[in-house]
């Protein structure tokens, strides 16, 4: 048994091909929806690498994404740092910021950890408004951030490459022994320690990986939309959209958060003409609830079972 089999690589190549050919078949309006789906998939993968694997449920993920967004926005807009430097630096700053979130994970678990991380998000929301508003833009945020693409097609390819690259590399990492150890950590932390592995090191690795993805996604997002505001970033709805995308798609996998992000983004857009405003969220809340009650492992698990059943029938 090989850890990376040819069939896996063929599946990834087919996925890339479908994504690359997408602009030939859909309108610019639909491409714009895909762009947001791609970014949501990146944030969902980032959350899943930490919480889906290790079981440390983070309610503070917008805090990490926000660090990436604000760091690159401040560097490029206020100090004229070129984007090719501001983005990697923003990722680095996000990884440093993740150490702050990591510290409570050394002492608290479960709902206590989730609440501590939620406090980080609220703290960030309050602080960016009062500390150096000349840099952060205060309550109004920052406008006129340099954008790196123009037009729906370019934006799509940029976000698609980012999402695909992150998904593929994360998948490769999760196929290694580190991926197995992180999954084990989420199942039985005591047994991982009882097997002689440092759970502190493993948790730190998960936090840093998650922060890397969140920072990278956040920084690119800032340079795609060109404007940021604290209330849209450090927001409970944004947090729940990320978490629900993972849960609907299937946590503990790489493809699950992507499926969930696409499903959720398109569902909300599909419902927009019929249920404008917050009413749409009742529908997606209902779907998430039903899925969680009857198939807690998400859409990925349903598709996986159907494929296995079909293969079983075909043999």
């Amino acid at each position: 048994m090989k850890l990376i089999e040819t069939k896996h690589l063929i599946a990834w190549a087919a996925f890339l091909l479908v994504l690359a050919l997408m602009p030939m078949f859909v309108s610019n309006g639909t491409l714009r929806i895909f762009i947001f789906a791609n970014f949501l998939a990146v944030f969902a993968i980032s959350w899943d690498v930490l919480s889906g694997r290790t079981g440390y449920i983070s309610f503070g993920h917008p805090f990490l994404i926000g660090i990436g967004v604000y760091a690159t926005a401040i560097m490029s807009k206020r100090f004229g740092v070129p984007v090719e430097y501001s983005i990697p630096l923003a990722v680095l700053v996000t990884m440093l910021g993740s150490v702050l979130v990591f510290l409570p994970a050394l002492r608290v678990k479960g709902s206590y950890f989730a609440l501590v991380t939620l406090a980080f998000m609220e703290l960030a929301y309050q602080l960016v408004q009062v500390i150096r508003p000349d840099l952060t833009g205060g309550t109004r945020g920052i406008f006129g951030i340099k954008t790196i693409t123009r037009g729906a097609e370019n934006g799509y390819y940029m976000s698609m490459c980012l999402m695909f690259g992150i998904a593929f590399v994360s998948w490769l990492v999760m196929r290694t022994q580190l991926g197995t150890a992180l999954s084990a950590l989420g199942m039985q932390e005591e047994s991982v320690e009882g097997s002689g592995k440092s759970t502190t090191k493993l948790k730190l690795a998960a936090f840093l990986m998650s922060a890397f993805i969140a920072g990278l996604g956040g920084a690119f997002y800032a340079h795609y939309v060109g404007a940021i505001a604290p209330r849209t970033l450090f927001d409970i709805n944004f947090l729940f959209t990320i978490i629900v995308a993972v849960l609907i798609g299937g946590s503990g996998t790489i493809i699950g958060p992507i499926i969930g992000a696409f499903f959720l983004t398109f569902l909300l857009e599909f419902l927009r003409p019929y249920l404008p405003g917050a009413g749409r969220y009742f529908i997606y809340g209902g779907i998430a609830l039903l899925l969680y009650m009857y198939q807690p492992k998400g859409i990925y698990s349903i598709v996986d079972k159907l494929i296995k059943r079909w293969r079983g029938g075909a043999v």
Binding site: Q177, L178, M187, Q188, S195, L202
Partner: peptide, 23 residues
């Protein structure tokens, strides 16, 4: 580890402790 296979369960005991070596 409930969702890991028998061989993966054994792997947790045998794998190196360094993150880089795990990778």
């Amino acid at each position: 580890f409930a969702e890991l296979t028998v061989l993966e369960n054994i792997r947790i005991g045998h794998m190196p402790n360094s993150i880089w070596s795990m990778l």
